[in-house]
Every structure is written in C-alpha cells, then in structure tokens.
Amino acid sequence: MIKIEVDMTKCQHYGQCVFEAPNIFRLNSDDKLEYTAEADDSERANVEAAVDVCPMQAIRIVE
C-alpha cells in the first residue's frame, strides 16, 4: 500500500493529477479536488507522475 497526502493549503484544484492517476484523484462537481488517501502499490507510478505534474507541488507519497 502507498499513502498519499495532498496539502490542501497549497492545492489550487488545477486537476493535472486527475489525468495521471484517475483512480486516485478527481475533480468534484464544484471543481474541487478529491482524492483517495491509500492505494495499491500498482498505483505508485501513476501517483509519482501526478506528483510531477502538480503545479503547486502539493502531492506527496508518504514513504
């Protein structure tokens, strides 16, 4: 399992992460980011890609 943290004080809801890891991140009907805080190891590559594309660098994988 991997744990995912999004610093919601940094997040500006740009949603770039949604495309890299659609199983983890989504924009809700108010255009706000929602995410799943725990995921299977198979999602690691996608979540790392999401970390890379976050303009605010608000996403962390907690090791």
Binding site: H13, Y14, V18, L27, D31
Partner: peptide
C-alpha cells in the same frame, strides 16, 4: 479563468 473541468476536458 476558473472552469477547470471544462478546460481539462480539452486535453
């Protein structure tokens, strides 16, 4: 400006 979901839909 704003309207993220609409913009994202263009990808």
């Amino acid at each position: 400006i704003g309207m993220r979901s609409v913009v994202q839909g263009y990808r």
